[in-house]
């Protein structure tokens, strides 16, 4: 009984207590990553673009030839890798997070609309989905970036739009299935409007597939951004993003592997945290699983 009272007073604490050791560790790792990104300007001792040609390609501390003050070593222009990683993480996380939300907002709305309305609306939306899949994305990216130039806002929109069709497909298919469920028919028999059916009866039952798609899309956007950067279409150098750092560092792999390793490990960590927390959120969102 006291535990219950405590849980009511301190929901955060109760939540933490309900977690297993694995999820606690992953959650802390996630918190560290987010904090590192947010606090980048205060954590970094050097600017991310400050060059020091005297100290090029220095290895991380603890290796022969390391230079004090450069924890993760330096890159080919003598820039501090730690600073670049922190700023890169900051940019990559915000791009991926906002891009995912844009894709979700467009895709889930259109998918839900297609599934509920059916008929011509559905045919039109699904035709748009097919078109999006058929046109090479880099082509669209080239066109948009040539028109509007590469700014943070344009990048977010571009990366979000790049994934909307997957949300739309999954949500539309799942909505079609749910529309045939008796509980939706019961709601219609009770006089519920299509809007109410979509928001009260369909959307909460769509959380699981949406969350799974979000985790996939989050990682995809990180990779997409790096391939755009590699083509010179993404965030412009010398601004650091994790993907761009991997792309540039590839050339120095034989002589300075740390340039690739540091951002790669971060990408890995971010993706891992997102996947685990996504699965976790999906299980928690399902009342049937939560009861067990």
């Amino acid at each position: 009984m006291t535990g219950f009272a405590l849980a009511r007073a301190r929901p955060g604490l109760a939540f933490w207590r309900s977690l297993g050791a694995f999820h606690r560790v992953v959650l802390m790792l996630g918190a560290v990553l987010v904090l590192a990104a947010v606090l980048a300007p205060w954590l970094a001792q050097h600017g991310p673009t400050d060059q020091s040609l005297m100290s090029r390609l220095k290895p991380p501390l603890g290796f022969a030839g390391a230079k004090a003050g450069y924890l993760l070593g330096t890159d080919e222009l003598g820039r501090d890798l730690l600073a670049r990683c922190l700023y890169g993480l900051r940019l990559t996380l915000s791009l991926a997070f906002l891009g995912t939300l844009v894709g979700l907002a467009i895709g889930a709305t259109l998918g839900l609309l297609a599934g509920v309305a059916g008929g011509r609306t559905e045919a039109a939306i699904m035709a748009a989905v097919d078109m999006q899949i058929a046109i090479p994305f880099t082509l669209v990216a080239l066109f948009v970036l040539a028109l509007f130039g590469s700014s943070f806002g344009v990048m977010i929109l571009l990366l979000g739009v790049a994934g909307w069709e997957q949300y739309a497909r999954i949500v539309a298919a799942e909505t079609r299935r749910l529309m045939r469920m008796p509980f939706v028919e019961a709601a219609r028999a009770a006089g519920a409007t299509p809007r109410r059916i979509a928001l009260v009866h369909l959307l909460p039952n769509l959380i699981s597939p949406i969350v799974v798609q979000m985790t996939l899309s989050f990682s995809n956007i990180i990779l997409l951004e790096s391939s755009l950067s590699f083509l010179g279409l993404g965030v412009q150098p010398p601004t650091a993003t994790l993907g761009a750092m991997v792309g540039v560092g590839r050339d120095y792999m034989p002589i300075a592997p740390w340039i690739v390793l540091a951002p790669s490990v971060l990408i890995l960590a971010v993706t891992f945290v997102v996947q685990v927390l996504g699965d976790f959120a999906r299980d928690r969102a399902d009342v049937r699983l939560r009861a067990r």
Partner: peptide
Amino acid sequence: RPLRRRAQMVFQDPYASLNPRL
């Protein structure tokens, strides 16, 4: 819609006819 309150329906499968999220 307003007339729907006069007649209601009960379905065969009590497992599928209740929204699992409410």
